[in-house]
Design a protein around this nucleic acid. Structure first.
Lengths: 116, 116
DNA sequence: ATAGTTGTATCATTTAATGATATATCATAT
DNA sequence: ATATGATATATCATTAAATGATACAACTAT
């Protein structure tokens, strides 16, 4: 996605989505990386560049807040109230998109091919 | 999304997803624009720059094929077999992502707040 | 004829994400 | 003690995706 669509349109990129989901509970950067890997069965691996870049961006937008439990070494974040609202909205958007896909495909194919 | 992740990882960006969905039936560029607006209840509007850029990219990747029914003025495309496979895979991916979101949120909230 | 819609196309720009790289701490085995 | 690997954060330059702006032509209805 480009051109600031992500937040201008109140949409989340996949990476932001995963990170916000991970921050439902307080967690620090490296923990997020691991949680995302967990949640996705190792399917998604987010590197440090993406992680800390996005973390900073989300904090600037007040979608997450710094909790700073561990003083120095770790920076613990958590999703904010507005972040939670945006996240829920995005889950619904994603459901709508997937349903749309199933409908369009379902309309002209009984089944089979790649398996439903 | 950046760094060629979209197709290297066999993932579709939102825009590519919408366009591929529209091309389940043969359609030309401008028709795609309208169909996407239709499918999304006017929620998504894709401009010419995005549309023709992505169309070209999808054709290069053989995810869509040029049908050229209308000789000159219109260029009619349709999704290819491999495009259909990729599309189905992506629908499943999107379902998984949304389910993941619902689960994470569901785990620690009875309901309410922004609605289910 | 002229205004609006249909239709395709490209260029420069903006944003997002990543690879590479750097640095420091902590735990554990040798 | 010290070397190795995991934990932890951070930035820079680069690559890729999407878009705004713009251009141009044909068709349609007034």
């Amino acid at each position: 996605m480009a051109r600031g669509k992500a937040l201008d349109d109140n949409q989340l990129t996949d990476s932001m989505y995963y990170i916000l989901l991970s921050l439902i509970e307080p967690l620090h950067g490296y923990g997020i990386k691991q949680k995302i890997s967990d949640l996705s069965n190792g399917e998604i691996e987010i590197g440090p560049a993406s992680l800390y870049t996005i973390l900073k961006k989300l904090a600037t937008r007040d979608l997450i807040v710094l909790v700073v439990e561990d003083g120095e070494r770790r920076k613990t974040y958590q999703i904010s109230a507005s972040g939670r609202v945006l996240l829920k909205r995005d889950i619904k958007r994603r459901i709508r998109m997937a349903e749309m896909g199933k409908n369009v495909l379902g309309e002209l194919q009984g089944g089979s091919d790649d398996g439903e």
